[in-house]
Design a protein around this nucleic acid. Structure first.
Lengths: 254, 254
DNA sequence: CTATGCTGACTGATGAGTCAGTCTAGAGCA
DNA sequence: TGCTCTAGACTGACTCATCAGTCAGCATAG
């Protein structure tokens, strides 16, 4: 960050015509043409990020604002001005930290994805190893739903907007899923080896789980189903493991 | 259709300034200012739709083009000019049949949704009533995947773009899903009553099924998993009914 | 003839990205 | 401690490209 702004494809400064704009709302002698350029008015001086730490902090502040804005409006409808406003930073400042809207969005997605994978990974590692091969699976799904419940904008970004930025074509397949799916696949494969999971193609199984968890989380980020994260996770895990056919010990609902 | 164009908020015709534009690429005496308005040049005369039948046909032609364009580029990136070009129709003609980009998209979504529900509904009705309560379910999922396989752009529209047009906020919840979900719910409820399906909230069960089918179809519309629609449908149905736990009679994979 | 399907150049609005200019944190110095 | 100086963080008015939507005019089926 804090790179010198590249002057790519810019016009000669001499070529730029400067038109007169008078500050203020609806006032000013608009009739007076070609007056000298007016004094710039700075509104409120923003505390400047000078060291690496505060720069990282400002970057985070921008990412947080971007998350809210993108989640609310969607990538295309949200504007950089919205992000700047939400972050309480000037328009130009956003471009000090991110080269483009596209880069900002990618950085945001990347952050969100890492945060999710970190959270689930940690939950997985802190789960005690009972003999049950389903235990890590249940722990992972629970961790995911808890994480999603705490951060609805993140869910919208990850499962609604991820696919909108199609890098032209679907090179990256179905958006940000892939890393997440790979994580799940790493749980599925040993479970299959242990005979605890049917012998279907592991990536298809993993994708199905990711899709189900993602879509349900997305729905929950929009509507209130009246259940908490743990209950939903239990439903999903039970359904995935045992299917919709009735069992001996029914799960309680309602 | 074929409504007289509403003159909403238009300028007085007298007010419009007409600048000189000379047809052709890069030629023309640009120096000659304020020449009279040039003759309009029509490129190729398009067969005109005069009766209701051919008008409906033209409308369908536009919807088909719109489907391809929206599926390829996504709602926001696709332009009305793209649609016109793809339909081999002039820019203005699109607005003869649809009032706005938004209306075009909605009409398209509505068409796609109806087509899907029709297809699945028909499959459901033509399925012989064996005693198996799972049979209609299997038939419906199979029909859906077959339908999706035959029309990848439709899948992208339905499961990728449906959510992007947020009517401002999520009034219509998770896009076009809802009708589809209700159809599924109508299969789930009697199955629950018959004791064939666990006693979870029927809408949550229905949503889970819809999400799974939709997301897998979306993935299949982008990547080739090497399976055909029937195989995928079997996998989904088996997983949904019996879960991922190994069974007596394993399904064949690979 | 003429109603109306059709055409495409034009307009206005919007928004990403630029950049000349402003200002301050903190280094260097006395 | 107080002062100057400057790199570089920050600002927002501006430019330019893009695109949805308009409309005056063209042309043909009936």
């Amino acid at each position: 960050m804090a790179r010198p702004r590249a002057t790519v494809g810019s016009l000669n400064n001499e070529d730029r015509k400067r038109s007169v704009v008078v500050a203020g709302i609806g006032v000013g002698k608009m009739g007076v043409a070609s007056a000298g350029p007016q004094k710039r008015q700075r509104s409120t001086a923003m505390q400047r990020a000078m060291n690496d730490e505060s720069k990282a902090q400002r970057r985070t502040q921008l990412l947080q604002a971007a998350k809210d804005v993108f989640a609310e409006k969607g990538y295309h409808t949200a504007t950089m001005a919205d992000v700047a406003r939400s972050a309480q930073v000037s328009y130009g400042s956003v471009y000090w930290y991110f080269d483009s809207k596209d880069e900002l969005f990618r950085a945001l997605m990347s952050d969100c994805e890492m945060a999710l994978r970190d959270h689930v990974g940690t939950a997985l590692q802190t789960t005690p190893d009972t003999g049950d091969p389903a235990a890590p699976f249940r722990a992972a799904v629970q961790a995911a739903f808890e994480f999603f419940e705490a951060d609805p904008p993140l869910v919208k970004l990850l499962f609604r907007d991820a696919q909108t930025l199609g890098r032209g074509i679907e090179t990256h397949l179905v958006g940000i899923y892939e890393g997440f799916i790979s994580d799940i696949e790493r749980i599925v494969v040993p479970a299959q080896a242990a005979g605890a999971v049917i012998d279907a193609p592991p990536r298809m199984v993993a994708f199905s789980i990711a899709a189900l968890v993602g879509q349900i989380a997305l729905r929950r980020s929009i509507t209130d189903d009246g259940f908490n994260a743990r209950e939903v996770a239990d439903f999903v895990v039970d359904m995935l493991l045992s299917g919709l056919r009735p069992r001996r010990e029914p799960v309680a609902w309602g």
